[in-house]
């Protein structure tokens, strides 16, 4: 460090020095970093249990230095329910992608929200199956080309993309639901605040908390990270509007 300067930001301690396997520009890594920063700031490293899904973020336990449990595909909500009921003093969150939370795990997600389980969903919505090579997901936008919809998603045969935040905010058990994105620095800061609020509401025991992050997938959208951010802004955000969908009743 040069003299006359102070360090105002460094890599959070909870984020291990392991090199992440994510593609360059992937927002999974940004969200990992935000979670690690929050766990550092809230001093919850010893009290946090995460549930990793199957998907690109399957190796999350290698990157964030907290207790983790690996769930079967789609069953993260069921596992998080069990962990929170057995260890009610812990901060529990599930970290899931759209294939995991909105496709194979829809039943677990909806019923956990309906029961008002006291844990946090962190839902990364990048409109595609990333790990398996870019197949169509329930959240794939209409007209978007994927390996299983080479002419673009047709609403007639595949329906319209699922809006999970709107869906879960209808349940009485859900205390907090917010949709955020990470496409620019202001939105990244908002994402951090949203996750922090979700963790605080969970600690107060008010109900299920749900944070949806509208994300990118440069590799499977077949574009550069720069173009992927433009696509998030121009194509994803008009269909997935950002905002707070549910606040706890005061």
């Amino acid at each position: 460090m040069k003299t006359g300067y102070e360090k105002i930001y460094e890599r959070p301690d909870t984020l291990l020095s392991t090199r992440m396997h994510y593609c360059p520009g992937c927002m999974h890594a940004i969200v990992h970093k935000l979670i690690a920063e929050l766990i550092d700031e809230m001093k919850l490293q010893e009290k946090t249990v995460g549930v990793c899904p199957v998907g690109c973020s399957v190796f999350a336990y290698d990157y964030i230095d907290i207790d983790w449990q690996e769930a079967a595909h789609g069953r993260a909500a069921a596992l998080a329910t069990a962990i929170k009921r057995m260890l009610p003093d812990r901060l529990v969150f599930s970290y899931q992608g759209d294939g995991d939370l909105a496709a194979i795990g829809t039943a677990e997600t909806i019923h956990a929200c309906n029961r008002g389980e006291q844990f946090t969903f962190i839902f990364i919505n990048n409109a595609i199956y990333g790990m398996t090579g870019g197949q169509m997901a329930p959240t794939t936008l209409e007209g978007m080309k994927t390996t299983t919809s080479p002419y673009g998603r047709l609403a007639k045969t595949a329906g319209m993309p699922l809006k999970m935040c709107e869906l879960v905010s209808q349940f009485d058990g859900v205390a907090f639901a917010q949709r955020v994105s990470c496409n620019n620095p202001a939105n990244v800061r908002r994402t951090k605040k949203a996750i922090q609020r979700a963790f605080e509401i969970q600690q107060q025991g008010l109900g299920t908390t749900f944070v949806e992050v509208v994300s990118n997938c440069p590799s499977n959208w077949k574009c550069t990270p720069e173009v992927s951010l433009q696509k998030v802004k121009e194509e994803m955000l008009p269909y997935f509007p950002l905002g707070v969908y549910k606040e706890p009743r005061s």
């Binding site: 360090k7 105002i8 890594a29 990244v188």
Partner: peptide, 21 residues
Amino acid sequence: ACMNCSVMCPDAAITVYKKTE
């Protein structure tokens, strides 16, 4: 020292220093 780069960096590769006075 606005920290925009460190906020956006997916791999947390950036350390930011700010002048003290």
